[in-house]
Amino acid sequence: MTISVNGKPTLIETPRTTVTDILVLHNVRSPEVVSVQLNGDFLEHRNFASTYLDDGDEVEILYFMSGGERG
């Protein structure tokens, strides 16, 4: 199947691929450092490992970014 990850078409050949698998593929070192939108919807972290992807799904990985100054 082909899904979109961060706007780029990605061919997935492993069956039953989860959001967690995609994060591993993208070298996300811990799921705590990102938020994931699946087809535009916010996905709870606790559901990453149990959410299987379908052909045409759109996954967007957004890192938590701090930066700036204390305020």
Partner: peptide, 11 residues
């Protein structure tokens, strides 16, 4: 708060 990293990873 519902943040938790599951112990097992389904494949």
């Amino acid at each position: 708060v519902g943040r938790r990293w599951p112990d097992t990873r389904s494949t």
